[in-house]
Amino acid sequence: VEVGAVYVAGRRARDGAVKLQSAQVVTVVLEEAGQSPLEAVGPSAPLRVLFEDADVIAVDKPAGLNAQPSEGRVGASLVDVVGAHLGGTAGLVHRLDRETSGVTVFGKSASATAALAEAFREGTARKRYLAATGPGLPAGGTVDLPLSKDPSRPGRWRATRAANGVPAWTDYRTLFAGDAFCLVELLPRTGRTHQLRAHLTALGTPILGDARYGG
């Protein structure tokens, strides 16, 4: 309960002394991407700086490292690592999921962070992802299914028009299609939580290795 791993009737439990009602479902999420939320994050690799000037720094985030500190995790996050490199505060303006690797940009001042945040908010900063999925992905297209929290699976989002979700758009292009897997380029127009994971799952081709979404 203390680390936010317990859900009662699909809602995170905050009070360990709460009385349960008859037939209520209790879910304990002990693993996220194969690692217990109580387990310390291992030592991170040396920070790989891709670009740095007086205003911004772009780094290569490794898979398995949280973008920022989160409840139930111990150990350094990418924000901590970059902050230590800068000797001050690192202005995080976008996040990659813990399991995702790739370029992450930080502002080195309040004004730079605000300018970067506006670029991401207005869509002038373009994001491109590569993912390996299960077989059967179409050649390309756009997924425009709204996203909403999945009440039956805590910590997971669903892509469906059947719920009152938030708008989300993902353009995709299949770069390779084989019998065992596909390689796809993803260009999200919006930046919703778990957007790419949920949209690919809705297509019937979840990201390989993504246990939470059936990959």
Rank of each mutant, 00 (worst) to 15 (best):
T142I: 11
A132P: 07
V3A: 11
W157D: 12
H199W: 05
A54N: 15
R98G: 07
S44Q: 10
A177R: 12
A40E: 15
V143A: 05
P167V: 04
G34M: 11
G107A: 05
V59W: 10
S109Q: 04
E99Y: 04
Y213W: 02
P43N: 02
R161C: 06
K149Y: 11
G209I: 11
L50E: 04
L196Q: 02
H85Y: 03
V41R: 05
G134P: 04
H85V: 11
P154T: 04
L78S: 09
D97G: 09
S148V: 13
I57P: 06
E32L: 14
F106G: 07
S148D: 08
L78M: 15
D53I: 05
P69Q: 00
G209S: 13
T104N: 06
A58F: 06
P135G: 10
H85N: 05
P206L: 03
R192F: 12
G215D: 14
R12P: 01
V81K: 09
T133V: 10
A115I: 01
S22Y: 03
A168K: 04
G83A: 14
G75F: 05
A163V: 12
L203W: 12
W169N: 07
S70H: 02
L196I: 13
G83S: 13
D60Y: 06
E122C: 14
L200A: 09
P135H: 03
A163Y: 03
A90D: 08
E32M: 00
S101G: 01
G16M: 11
V74C: 10
E52H: 08
K127W: 11
D171N: 14
G214S: 09
D171L: 12
K108I: 00
R158N: 01
S152Y: 14
E185T: 10
V29E: 11
I207T: 09
R161D: 08
P43G: 02
L147Q: 08
V93I: 10
R128F: 11
R156G: 15
E32W: 08
L116A: 07
A132M: 03
G123D: 06
W169I: 06
D55N: 01
V81G: 01
A23F: 10
D80Y: 03
A84N: 06
V28M: 11
D80W: 03
A125E: 01
Y213K: 00
A54H: 15
P62V: 08
V59C: 12
S152N: 14
W169K: 01
A45L: 04
F181V: 15
L50F: 03
L116H: 03
V82M: 11
L47D: 05
T205E: 13
A90G: 08
A90K: 03
V41N: 15
L50N: 11
Q195F: 06
G140Y: 00
I207M: 00
A202W: 14
Q35A: 15
R212F: 13
A17Q: 03
A125T: 09
R73S: 02
A45P: 09
P188K: 00
A117Y: 14
R14Q: 12
V8C: 06
E2H: 08
G123L: 04
G191H: 09
G16D: 12
E122K: 08
K19D: 06
V1Q: 05
